[in-house]
Amino acid sequence: MARRAYLCRWMSCVLLIWGAATYSSAQNTATSALVVSMSVQSSISLEFVNGSGAGTQGTCTITGANTSTASVNFGIASLAGDNQSCVSFSSTTKSYTLSNNIYALVTQSNLASSGYTLTASLGSAPPSGVAWTINSAALTTGAANLTSGGSYGSNMALYLQVTVQNTVTTSNLSETINFVATAN
């Protein structure tokens, strides 16, 4: 009850100030006070961008560039080669490997952080005989650390590779790779 009474008094006081302002206008002077409040939060963003060599071999043009949801087409591949000229293809007697540069841009705002940590994970486990890596780090459905010292505002090259053993049957090997950038 005492707390409610206090609030009521406080509200009356505000009304009183407002009334005073009205009154004051008649005196050609007015004063008011608008209390503005906000809470600024630090934030970072991650987006995929096309590198300078986009479209050339080794650097496919991604769709969804400058967003956080992009895609790249590695085409149809076998030991005989890949039908996408922008994908780098190599093979051994037992497997083939597709390679491509992807670029991620992480920017920060209102943050005293000097760098970020980037991890990546596969959206689903690949079939046996298929291995994905980024910058030589093996990807699984768990988070794989790609860097602990990423620089904000600079494109980070992600050398994405997938190696497919010749025992893998004809199938769709598409994957979604989830990236998380966390400010240090």
Binding site: E47, L160, V164, T176
Partner: peptide, 22 residues
């Protein structure tokens, strides 16, 4: 301040394993 900000993104990679001889 206790929780460092983070951002996420997803890259979809389309790949069809075909058949071939080398």
């Amino acid at each position: 301040a206790a929780q460092n900000p983070s951002a996420s993104g997803s890259l979809s990679v389309q790949l069809q394993n075909g058949s071939g001889l080398q």
